[in-house]
Design a protein around this nucleic acid. Structure first.
Lengths: 343, 343
DNA sequence: TTGAAAGCGCTAACAA
DNA sequence: TTGTTAGCGCTTTCAA
C-alpha cells in the first residue's frame, strides 16, 4: 500500500538526548504509560512499572521539563526577584525558600535586581516568560507596568519583607513603620536624647526612618540627624558615616542603622575613636545577620525571622501552584529588638 | 467545500495567555514574522517591525520561553549548583555570574546542595531536566553517577574554585595546595614557629591543610595542630575553636582558618582573652569577604578574585552556548595573600 | 489500567 | 523579506 507519496518531511535537528519515546519503545509500552509511570506511578500496574523503571535505568533517561511544562502548563519552577544577595539580610530567607521548594520538587530561579528599577522591569518580564508556577518578591511591587503585567499573567505572587494596604496577591512581611517607632521608643527608654540614623537609600529604610523621626519629635527631643549613605551597605561606609555624624552632631548618643553591616562599621569606628559603646554611644542595627551576635561588643539589633518568611512563602506558593487555597494570604511575621551589648 | 468530516478535535485547555499567534493576527502577519521581529529584528523590514512591535504593546504579549526553548533546543538558562549561599565566600562569584548572564540575556537557575552529596545528585538531575545551555559548578564533580550523567547530557560545564588534573569540560579556579603552602611560608616568614589550623569539614579546606602541614613539617617545625569544626562556618564556632586550640596548644603563635568568618571568631575570642593580635597570635583568614578589611584589627587573609571567576565562567558558558569555541577552557585565576593587621 | 490522537506555543527548515 | 509546514517532547483528552 505504499503509494510513495509521502510528503517531503522537513528534517529537524533533534536534541539527541534520550526521549520518553525511546524509553517507551524499549519497555514495549506506549509513551503515555512511561509518562504515567514517572509522574503518577499509582496509575500503572506494578508489572509495567517495573518494566518502565528498568528501561529508564538502562537508557539514562532524564525528562525534558520544557516539553513537560509546555504540555501541562506547569513548570515546577518558582522565581524569586531579590534586590541583592551578597552579604545581605535576605540570604536566610532565600535559603529557607530554596530548601522548602526543593523538598517539594520545585526549582528556584533567582533573579537579582541590584536595587535598580529598570533592571527589575526587564527581569520581571524574563521571569514571566519562563511561566513559573509562582513568584517570590522582596518588597512590594509599586503600581506600574510591571505590576500590571504580573497581575495580568495570573501567576501567584507573594510579596515579602514589607506590609502594605493592598498586596498584589499574597504577602509575608512586617511593618517598617512599627520598627521605626519601636527603635525610637527603645532608645528613648534607655535615656538617650540625641538620636540619629545612618541609612542606605532604599524605600523601606526610608519608612523606618520617618516613623523613627516622628516618634523622636513627639517625645520632644531634638530633630533626628540622618546620614544617607546612598546605595552602599558595607562596613567601610558605616565607618565613614560615624565620622560624618560626629562632625554634624557631636552630642549624638544613639544611632539606628539601616543594616547590621553599617552598624558594624559604626561600632568599629567608635572603637577606633575611643567613643565608648554603649556608654557614650548606643548602636542599634537591623537584620540580625548571624555574625553580629558573636562580636565583642555584641550588636543590639532588630531581628527579623527571615527563614520563616522564606518557609511560609514557599508553603503558600506551592499550595497555590497545586490549586489549593491559602487560608491566610497575608501574614505579619513581626520583629523583635534583640538587646545585646551595644545599647 | 466543507465536507463536514472534521475529525473530532480534542479540546485542550490553553493557558489563556496571549500567544505569538494572537500578536501575528493583530499585526496581520504570519507567526514566524513575529518570531523574527522579536528575536532577529534585522531580518524584518522596518514596516512590519513597527506593526509587530505595536501589536506586542497592545496585547501585552510575553513570550513563552518553554515553548521557544523546546522548539529551538536553546533554553537561555544557565544553572549553577553551589554548596551554600548564606554568608558564603561564593556570593561574589554568584553575583558576578548572574550579572554577566543577565546582561547577555540569560537567566540563572540557582541550586543549593548544602554540602550534601545525595542532595547534589538529585539537584543535578533536576538541573539536566531543565535543559540549561550551560552548568556552573562550585568545586570539581567527583566521578560517579552524577558526573557520568552530566557528561552524557552534552551540556557545557564549568567547574570552579578548584584546580584538578581532569576537569569535565571547562574550569576556572586555583590550587588549594598552593594556598596551603603559601600560607605556611607566609607565617613562617613572619617568624612564627607554632602553626595551627582551624578548619571546616570540606574537601578543599582539607587539601589546603595537607599542603600547609607538609610545608610546616619540611621546615622542621612542630606538627600542625588542627581544630576541625565540622560543618559550621560561623563566628561563634571560630570563638570556640580558639578556646579549644589554646587548651590543646598553649604555645600556638599562628592560626590559619579555612574561612574569614571562622577567623573573625578567632580574632574576637583573642580580644576577649587579651591574647595580643598579632604580637602573640597571628591570624590568617580565607576568602577576603568584604567586611574583614574594615574591621579593627583588619584581618589578613587569602584573597580569591571571586568576581572574576563568575565573570569568566559566564563568558565561557555563553560562548559555548552560542556555538563559539573557548580558546582557554582551563584558567587558573590564582590567589594572593592580603597582609593586614592580624599577622 | 492502557492506549491513540491531538496539541501546548514556539522556531527550524524549506520555499517563494 | 516573508510565508508554509512540520515538529521539538511531552501530557491532556477521549476511548477502550
Amino acid at each position: 500500500m505504499n503509494l510513495d507519496n509521502n510528503p517531503p518531511k522537513r528534517a529537524r535537528r533533534r536534541s539527541g538526548a534520550v526521549t520518553l519515546q525511546d524509553v517507551a519503545q524499549l519497555a514495549g509500552v506506549a509513551p503515555i504509560t512511561v509518562s504515567r509511570a514517572l509522574n503518577t506511578p499509582a496509575q500503572v500496574s506494578s508489572d509495567l512499572l517495573r518494566k518502565v523503571q528498568d528501561a529508564v535505568q538502562r537508557t539514562g533517561y532524564v525528562p525534558n521539563r520544557m516539553a513537560g511544562g509546555l504540555a501541562s502548563q506547569r513548570s515546577r519552577l518558582i522565581a524569586a526577584v531579590v534586590p541583592s544577595t551578597v552579604m545581605s539580610v535576605f540570604m536566610e530567607t532565600i535559603e529557607a525558600l530554596n530548601t522548602a521548594l526543593m523538598d517539594a520538587g520545585y526549582q528556584l530561579m533567582l533573579g537579582q535586581s541590584n536595587y535598580a528599577p529598570e533592571r527589575e522591569t526587564r527581569l520581571l518580564e524574563e521571569v514571566i516568560a519562563r511561566r513559573p508556577d509562582g513568584i517570590f518578591l522582596i518588597g512590594l511591587l509599586p503600581s506600574g507596568a510591571s505590576r500590571t503585567r504580573l497581575l495580568a499573567s495570573g501567576i501567584p505572587v507573594v510579596e515579602t519583607w514589607d506590609l502594605g494596604t493592598s498586596p498584589m496577591d499574597m504577602l509575608v512581611g512586617f511593618s517598617h513603620a512599627d520598627i521605626g517607632r519601636a527603635a525610637a521608643d527603645f532608645l528613648i527608654g534607655k535615656g538617650r536624647t540625641r538620636l540619629t540614623m545612618v541609612m542606605a537609600d532604599d524605600a523601606r529604610a526610608q519608612r523606618r526612618f520617618e516613623a523613627f523621626a516622628a516618634t523622636v519629635a513627639q517625645a520632644g527631643l531634638p530633630t533626628v540627624q540622618v546620614i544617607n549613605v546612598g546605595s552602599a551597605r558595607d562596613v567601610h561606609t558605616g565607618r565613614q558615616a560615624l565620622t560624618q555624624l560626629l562632625a554634624q552632631a557631636p552630642d549624638v548618643d544613639a544611632v539606628f542603622c539601616s543594616s547590621d553591616l553599617l552598624a558594624l562599621g559604626v561600632l568599629t569606628e567608635a572603637r577606633v575613636r575611643s567613643v565608648a559603646v554603649p556608654e557614650r554611644l548606643a548602636i542599634l542595627g537591623f537584620g540580625d545577620v548571624p555574625l553580629v551576635a558573636d562580636l565583642v561588643p555584641a550588636l543590639s539589633t532588630v531581628r527579623i525571622n527571615g527563614a520563616e518568611i522564606g518557609r511560609l512563602s514557599a508553603e503558600m506558593l506551592i499550595a497555590r501552584a497545586e490549586g489549593r487555597n491559602v487560608d491566610q494570604p497575608v501574614v505579619d511575621v513581626g520583629f523583635s529588638i534583640v538587646e545585646r551589648d551595644s545599647t
